[in-house]
Design a protein around this nucleic acid. Structure first.
Lengths: 112, 112
DNA sequence: GATAATACATAAGAAAACTATGTATTCTTG
DNA sequence: CAAGAATACATAGTTTTCTTATGTATTATC
């Protein structure tokens, strides 16, 4: 069972991170990679994946190229220059958030 | 400027954590404490706070008592027994998520 | 006396997810 | 070889969860 609910709001940043690391990926590949790297916690549904990719592209952070593999079409995405910058800042922000959240959740009354 | 967007989906768990640590708090107090403990990152708006508290109460995780302080009414919330259990499991789940997220965001191609 | 802070609440709207559905190709397995 | 699973895209309708805006009222500050 997925823990998608925890990743609420982080999906765009997760996609940017994957593209930053892997350079060029298509939607289905991104969803499988996310599943693998989160040990099955993040099972991105198609209804979340494709609109999210379209939004990142509309925002100028991604470009896409459709490629014909046999009779099947794949749409490869990669970061634009602006997307690389956004990736760095969004990843850093989310990392900081994760650290702050851990500290907060570990607080004991004695500390505070 | 707040970083509320990062806390998307985590608000209920944050409130449970605060009540677990402090025992008995009212809405306004919860929002100020969250602001303080997150160094200003989490500025819970009233439109998020009160519906969230009402939902936790409706779900049986909180009970409330209205108390008259001078001429002003405060609504104090505390965890029910079921709420204590939910707090523990939700906090643990979110902690684990934060750790996994950090690992994921720190991945380098060489690792994966 | 005006403004900010305290204290609750709800309504309308937006964002981001989910479920469901649609189309089509390719692989696997009985 | 037929059926089902996996691959690969996409969108529509719905739900959740937040924001912004509004409302009421008391108390503190300047």
């Amino acid at each position: 069972m997925s823990k998608n609910h925890l990743y609420k709001g982080a999906l765009g940043t997760v996609l940017l991170k994957l593209l930053e690391e892997n350079g060029r990926m298509y939607g289905y590949e991104l969803s499988k990679k996310a599943l693998e790297l989160t040990n099955g916690d993040l099972d991105i549904t198609e209804g979340a994946l494709y609109p999210a990719l379209h939004k990142l592209e509309a925002d100028g952070l991604l470009t896409s190229e459709s490629e014909r593999i046999g009779n099947r079409v794949r749409k490869y995405y990669s970061l634009t220059q602006s997307g690389s910058g956004a990736a760095r800042s969004r990843i850093a922000e989310l990392e900081e958030y994760a650290g702050n959240l851990q500290k907060f959740l570990n607080l004991k009354l004695s500390n505070g």
